[in-house]
Amino acid sequence: MKAADLAGRPVLVMMSRWPAFGRCKRRLGATIGSTAAATVQARLRTHTLTVAQELHNDGLLSLRLALSGGPSRREQQRLSAKVIDQGKGGLGLRMRRQMLEASKGSSPHPVLIIGTDLPDLSRRDLCCAIEALHHHPLVLGPARDGGYWLLGLGRHQAQACPAWLFSGLPWGSEHVLSTTLQRAQSRGWPVWLLDEHNDIDRMEDLSPWLA
């Protein structure tokens, strides 16, 4: 699909670590081993990329893959997505950087950011997020651990990309979602919550996926 055909369409940024021995899923790797953890990460990324790529091919969004520890150029060509580097800094800084980059363009458009730890992610999940962004400035996908699996900003909010959404959050704790909701409420931002999902960080998270 030509770039011009995607002008004004939502942009989906997938943020992921490249699945390499000892560099991804460290909490899971402490239990099942680094090699097995890297295999899990690769399968999760493939699933998420497949779901997102279908929407890209249908013209419903533009897809960007933001990697930490990226693949070789030959491997990038197999990913069927625009590959960019996440850059340095903490998670909040890297997310905001990707949001600002994705929001650039001649016409405003919504931007969504997701990870790749979602074995039950479906096409419906992303379509619901896109639809909600037509009516709400901020869309969040709650995770069972107190974080969120998706963050979406409406077209004008994505261009502004306020720092309060990303700075000083207790990343990795059970308070990420609640803190974000409190900040949005204090600024008068209506928030739409999607269905809750569970990401895979620990051994117990694998059980439903492997059942």
Rank of each mutant, 00 (worst) to 15 (best):
S122V: 00
A163W: 12
S173Y: 11
W189C: 15
T35I: 12
L153P: 11
Q86V: 13
L28S: 10
H134Y: 10
L210F: 02
A81P: 02
H56S: 09
S122P: 03
G172R: 08
L65Q: 06
R73A: 14
L181S: 04
H109Y: 00
W171P: 12
G172Y: 09
D205T: 10
V51G: 14
P170V: 08
M1Y: 14
P208D: 07
A211E: 12
H56Q: 13
T46K: 12
E75M: 07
R43Q: 08
A30H: 05
A143F: 00
Q86C: 12
A211I: 10
L79W: 04
H134L: 10
E196W: 01
A163R: 15
P208N: 06
L138F: 12
P71A: 08
C24W: 14
G168M: 15
L112K: 01
L12E: 09
G59Q: 08
A4R: 10
G141N: 14
K104R: 07
S16V: 15
I113H: 00
Q76H: 04
T31F: 10
G115T: 15
P162L: 06
S167G: 11
A211Y: 09
K82L: 13
S72F: 01
L181K: 03
P110Y: 01
H47V: 05
P137I: 06
L181M: 05
I32P: 15
R17D: 12
E54S: 02
P170S: 07
D199C: 14
G22A: 15
G69D: 13
P71S: 09
K88H: 14
T31K: 15
D120K: 12
A102D: 03
W209T: 08
R123D: 10
P190H: 00
I84W: 11
G90W: 00
S122E: 02
R144S: 15
F166K: 06
T116A: 06
W209E: 03
E131C: 01
H156F: 11
G105C: 05
L91A: 09
N198P: 09
H56G: 08
L165N: 04
R17Y: 13
T116W: 02
L165H: 06
L126Y: 06
R9Q: 13
T31V: 13
R96P: 02
H175A: 12
E101K: 08
T39H: 15
S186M: 10
E75H: 03
L118D: 11
V51L: 13
V40E: 01
Q157P: 03
R96C: 01
S103K: 07
R94A: 09
L6D: 07
L28V: 06
E75S: 07
V139C: 04
D199H: 14
P19T: 13
S72L: 02
F21H: 13
V83T: 07
R94M: 08
P110N: 00
E131R: 00
R43T: 06
E101R: 10
T116D: 10
